[in-house]
């Protein structure tokens, strides 16, 4: 079912790399064509007021290159950690039947550690976003 050899990979009759590449090229070309068309058809009458950033009628003060609040960085780090571990779970999932009970026990231990980590983050307050209620 899977195209493996180089011939099948590049054959247009097979759902392999050639068709994916071609599809990608067509999609990108289509997007570029739309953008080009709108640049070509659209009018261009810029002025200072129009090119100012829209902030609901208030003249913007300063740049919007603000520093991100810390909780966003924290979520990004949690995501990175959990996502990498998710990748391990995936690699087990695809072979879960041949691995049998032994594999299941091992991944259950792994998931247990993962849940323990989540509980730790939770208890430490890493998942609290709302205003503090004390």
């Amino acid at each position: 079912m899977q195209p493996i050899d180089a011939h099948a990979l590049l054959s247009p009759w097979q759902p392999g790399m050639l068709s994916l590449t071609l599809y990608g090229v067509v999609v990108i070309a289509l997007t570029l064509a739309i953008l080009f068309l709108s640049r070509w058809l659209g009018r261009h009458q810029p002025n200072d007021e129009k090119l100012r950033v829209y902030e609901s009628g208030i003249i913007p003060t300063g740049q919007a290159r603000l520093r991100y609040p810390v909780p966003f960085f924290m979520v990004a780090i949690f995501f990175l950690i959990f996502d990498v571990e998710g990748a391990y779970i995936f690699s087990w999932a695809v072979a879960s039947r041949p691995l049998g009970w032994a594999g299941w026990l091992q991944i259950e231990f792994f998931i247990g550690v993962l849940i323990a980590g989540l509980i730790y983050v939770w208890v430490k307050g890493g998942l609290e976003w709302g205003p503090k209620r004390d």
């Binding site: 950033v53 913007p60 919007a64 990004a76």
Partner: peptide, 23 residues
């Protein structure tokens, strides 16, 4: 890239929301 405060807030929210849900 818009360099507008509203857009920036939307963008940050988008990123944080996606990475929470993708898991």
């Amino acid at each position: 890239a818009s360099n507008s405060k509203f857009a920036l807030l939307g963008g940050i929210r988008g990123a944080a929301q996606m990475i929470s849900y993708e898991l």
